[in-house]
Amino acid sequence: MEIYRTDVGKKYAMAISGVMLLGFVVFHMIGNLHVFQGAAQINTYGEGLRDLGEPLFPRTLVLWAFLRVPLAAAFAVHIHAAYTLGYTNLKARGTHYQSPRDYLVANYASRTMRWSGTIVLLFLAWHLADLTWGIKTVNSEFARGDIYNNLVFTFSRWPVVVLYLAAQIALAFHIRHGAWSLFQSIGANNPRFNKFRRTFANTFTAIIVIGFMAVPLGTVFGIIH
């Protein structure tokens, strides 16, 4: 806890919570692809998540205790650290440069983490309301457990498709910098492997984003119907 009070410590917290969130994103993306196997498969998969750990643990306990709560905690830590560090950094400049900066390597992704992160967060709120909680004003045809038809309905509305695709682009920018940056923050640096860090981040981002986009696009092109 003491280490979290320092900025370097907060960056460790950002990296570790970031890894947890990346882990979630990977399994969520892979899980989504069950939709291409048909309604029965994806709906069984969804139920399977709730049944995890049965009969050793009560139903949904593993889902809540080992997946949802730690994920929510990771989100909270990630956002808190980002906010406090961002505020520190803003104060550290004092008077801003009065002439335009010409950045050499600080790229669009690295300089817009707070905005891409905010977009992903806002999208998450919509996404939960749309396909997890099924709030009627967001998804009027929502039926609990019928994942397949829920998403077919949601992607039958083109503004929603645009929203999902736009959110994936924001996510792509965010994890392209994050999946590289985390190695530096936790001090994982070895000249022998350093060149793979950039490649890893780019490949990882591409796989995640293509995997996620496949579902709304698959619906638009009638593969999922």
Binding site: T6, D7, V8, K10, K11, L85, T88, N89, K91, A92, R93, Y103, L104, V105, A106, N107, S110, R111, M113, H177, W180, S181, Q184, S185
Partner: peptide, 19 residues
């Protein structure tokens, strides 16, 4: 590190310093 943090911001790995 702790003295540095009294004065300056925190690293977000832009790499701008190196160049």
């Amino acid at each position: 590190v702790e003295t540095m943090e009294e004065f300056f911001g925190s690293c977000t790995n832009h790499g701008e310093c190196e160049s």
